[in-house]
Amino acid sequence: MTAASRPIRVLVAKPGLDGHDRGAKVVAAALRDAGMEVVYTGLHQTPEMIATAAVQEDVDVVGLSILSGAHMALFPRVRQMLDQMGRPDILITGGGIIPAEDMDQLQALGIGRLFGPGTPTAELISYIQSWASEHLEA
């Protein structure tokens, strides 16, 4: 059996205080249309709320969407909380308005690939699928 034998489970989350959810909703719908099981948190989530939801929903991937510039404070916190909750296996990916050098720094802190404005949804779908085929067991 390959990893594709069960749907990939994804939590799409909006950390921080910004209310721009157009991107998060487009991504959530695109992942669902690509056959993944998607849960969306809604707005204004703390890292604690996101990590707890990820564990409770038993997801494989957390997708963070942020446009407020607070990614350096909030993304690593989600990583730490998931690690503390015994789920270092969960992939954290995401996107928004994140300068390239911040993306590099976040990747060094255990965050997966991050996508900027204008990314076709096909690109992140294929990223998650190829991650899943390497990391998820049937």
């Binding site: 921080g16 205080l17 910004d18 703390t46 446009l67 407020s68 510039g69 607070a70 350096m72 909030l74």
Partner: peptide, 22 residues
């Protein structure tokens, strides 16, 4: 900034990482 838009002071826990950013 977002904390102000949401009615949080700059020293509120929810403001962390967001103060003066946007």
């Amino acid at each position: 900034d977002f904390p102000t838009l949401m009615g949080y002071d700059s020293d509120h826990p929810r403001s962390e990482g967001e103060v003066g950013k946007c």
